[in-house]
Design a protein around this nucleic acid. Structure first.
Length: 233
DNA sequence: TATGAGATTGGCT
DNA sequence: GCCAATCTCATAG
């Protein structure tokens, strides 16, 4: 089987989407950061646990024009039996990816205008997911700025629709395996001796059904949170 | 078949 | 602060 980097071409000459690792133990240099892919075994198979676990982890998008990456600072859990969860009424063509085993992408269009990235979060057949609401920019800010039409770092990835627009995420990526795919994957930073940030909890943003549940999670003190300041304390 | 609501955003008052 | 843009799907007729 042909493998990138083993065909006489230096890895650095390959486009990002081919340099992206399929295996876990490889460490990628993305911008100034050392990033290693998360395996399915590392991902909690529980929606709330995954929503908390993903804080501080990294979303990596590989494009032929470069790496795009951001640190997850805000998530929301959409659990089975929750009226606000898209899977509440069973599978439809739009929400079927929510029923994939944990670690797959569920990408959908909200309000006909904004794409949203979610991570499926339970066993196959259970419709649940974690919405990625905000990232802190790590790499590829110039390309993100092009996609977003703004240069301001705080406006690149603050809000789920902005995350998808900045990272060029749309229906074409719906259903992919975030632990295996080269184009979009989850990683963690390889570092020594960092202290874990405190996690804040609030109600979810923009809901009318089941709006009272404390299922939004965020890194306290981050400058890249969406939502009103009152919910970020 | 028609209608209204929705896990949002950007522009304008 | 208000509102339009515009896709998906549940519900009603």
């Amino acid at each position: 089987m042909w493998e990138p980097g083993r065909a006489g071409l230096p890895r650095s000459a390959l486009p990002c989407y081919l340099r992206a690792p399929l295996t876990t133990h490889k460490t990628m240099k993305i911008g100034p950061y050392d990033i290693r892919r998360l395996t399915r075994a590392q991902l909690p198979r529980d929606t709330v646990a995954l929503a908390r676990f993903l804080l501080g982890k990294v979303v990596v998008r590989a494009r032929d024009d470069g790496w795009l990456a951001g640190r997850i600072v805000e998530t929301e859990a959409y659990i089975q039996g929750d009226a606000a969860c898209h899977a509440f009424n069973g599978p439809t063509p739009r929400n079927r990816s929510l029923f994939l085993r944990h670690g797959h992408a569920y990408v959908y269009l909200a309000y006909g205008t904004s794409w949203m990235l979610n991570v499926s979060s339970e066993a196959e057949g259970v419709g649940s997911g974690v919405l990625i609401r905000a990232l802190e920019p790590m790499a590829g800010m110039a390309v993100m700025a092009q996609h977003r039409g703004t240069e301001k770092p705080r406006d690149l990835l603050r809000g789920p629709g902005r995350v998808a627009q900045a990272l060029a995420i749309n229906r074409a990526l719906d259903g992919l395996d975030l632990t295996r795919d080269r184009r979009l994957w989850l990683g963690h930073e390889v570092v020594n001796g960092t202290s874990p940030a405190k996690i804040g909890v609030s109600t979810r943003i923009g809901l009318t059904k089941d709006a009272h549940r404390p299922l939004r999670f965020f890194l306290k003190g981050s400058a890249y949170l969406s939502g009103p300041a009152a919910l970020n304390r």
